[in-house]
Amino acid sequence: MSEGSLSIPQLQEIERSIHNIITENNAVYIEEVPLARAKDIPGLRTVDELYPDPVRVVSVAVPVADLFNSQTDRRTSVELCCGTHLLRTGEIGDLVIISERQMVKGISRIVAVTGDDAREAREAGQILTQEVESLSARLAVVASPSLADAHRLAKEVGILTDAVDCTPIPQWKRRELQTRLKGLQRTTNTSIRKLETKEAAVKAQSLFKKNGNKTIVVDAVDTDSISVLMKTVNQYSDIAPGTLVMLLSHQQPSGKVLCACQVPKGFSALSASDWALTVCTRLGGNAGGSATVAKGTGSVADLTEALRCAEEYAQDKTQNIR
């Protein structure tokens, strides 16, 4: 919510005030008045546009003639308008504000729907509230989700967030649900990070047992997540600080290959970004990163050739200093 936008209580108060006017079923008075005289009406609402002369004056609950009486102190809604209006406020039936944003400081643009559209907006808001509550309850009871479960729940939060953002519902309700969903998104993101770190630690330890004596480690890892692959590379580098590490993951049946690598900081013989780019280009893909850390993607039917290419490139670059 941008600074200066109406708060949830303010939006609710505006709707309550309008509902009171609808319930009162006030008469709507319409009269044509000379433009110069109309502009003398106290509290007149105008917009930056040209008006005809005479102009159509629309007033709620107070006859137009009474608006010129200085003794009239009854507050009302009065504006210049060439459009069509209802004859009584009760004909509106219902009103829901579905959008609000600040145009300039102190002025907000409000979009509202009435009648059946208002009823449908309320119902849609109730349905989305129930879905958010259901998702929140499921997140609360899943004490130890798997990484796949955590990703699935995060995706559900994202889908529900899009629905809340795009569905016509009461704006105050939208703000409430957006706040709750941001909290749920933080929860799922934290869970994913912890699970990825845990999974990467297991994989890094396993790889170290297999390759611990090597100064260049090029190996395959079973994962569908580039984030897990990057974390595994990072944790392996923490275990063996002087090691050049590149890990590839071959996804089946798509043939897509994930690539992540890391070299010791300050190691000038080999750049991680060049290493990853060389391998991923051979795989028909692309890569990017820095001198120490890089990642990329490609595709291949057999991972063996990609692993051989990656190791040969690193050995060629480092043979004169190792």
Rank of each mutant, 00 (worst) to 15 (best):
146 S>A: 07
249 S>V: 02
253 P>K: 05
320 N>H: 08
5 S>T: 09
240 A>S: 13
311 E>D: 12
213 N>M: 11
77 S>P: 04
150 A>M: 06
171 Q>F: 09
305 E>G: 08
69 N>R: 02
11 L>S: 01
127 I>L: 07
56 R>S: 09
25 N>L: 07
271 S>L: 12
274 D>S: 13
59 S>Y: 03
75 R>D: 14
183 G>S: 10
77 S>I: 03
49 E>C: 00
96 V>D: 02
306 A>L: 06
131 E>L: 07
3 E>Q: 08
24 E>M: 06
150 A>N: 12
128 L>A: 11
73 D>Q: 09
229 L>R: 03
269 A>L: 09
153 L>I: 08
253 P>I: 04
187 T>M: 06
119 R>H: 12
63 P>Q: 11
109 R>C: 05
186 R>S: 11
81 C>G: 03
47 V>D: 10
216 I>V: 15
236 Y>P: 08
243 T>W: 13
144 S>L: 12
303 L>N: 15
175 R>M: 12
20 N>C: 07
145 P>C: 04
125 G>M: 10
258 L>A: 01
107 I>N: 12
291 A>D: 14
295 K>V: 01
59 S>F: 02
48 D>Y: 08
161 T>W: 15
99 S>Y: 15
25 N>C: 12
144 S>F: 11
44 L>K: 00
179 T>Q: 13
194 K>Y: 10
168 P>N: 12
51 Y>D: 02
285 G>Y: 08
100 E>D: 15
275 W>T: 02
94 D>L: 01
95 L>C: 04
8 I>R: 14
196 E>S: 13
264 P>I: 00
157 V>I: 10
272 A>M: 14
83 G>F: 07
289 G>N: 08
35 L>V: 06
105 K>G: 11
65 A>C: 04
21 I>S: 02
113 V>N: 09
81 C>K: 03
311 E>G: 04
218 V>T: 11
50 L>V: 00
90 G>P: 11
210 K>M: 13
11 L>W: 10
102 Q>I: 05
1 M>I: 00
319 Q>G: 10
43 G>S: 07
275 W>P: 04
252 Q>A: 01
219 D>V: 01
62 V>E: 09
119 R>C: 00
292 T>E: 15
172 W>L: 01
312 E>R: 13
102 Q>N: 12
312 E>M: 07
65 A>G: 03
42 P>T: 01
150 A>V: 03
166 C>K: 15
300 V>R: 14
322 R>H: 07
19 H>F: 06
258 L>I: 02
121 A>Q: 04
128 L>Q: 10
147 L>D: 11
115 G>Y: 03
111 V>H: 13
103 M>L: 10
288 G>F: 13
255 G>H: 03
99 S>T: 13
37 R>D: 14
308 R>K: 02
10 Q>L: 08
279 V>K: 12
24 E>N: 09
269 A>S: 08
103 M>A: 11
26 N>L: 14
138 R>M: 06
31 E>P: 00
162 D>S: 12
158 G>Y: 15
32 E>M: 06
42 P>Q: 04
307 L>Q: 15
56 R>Y: 06
2 S>V: 08
95 L>R: 03
13 E>K: 13
216 I>H: 14
113 V>A: 09
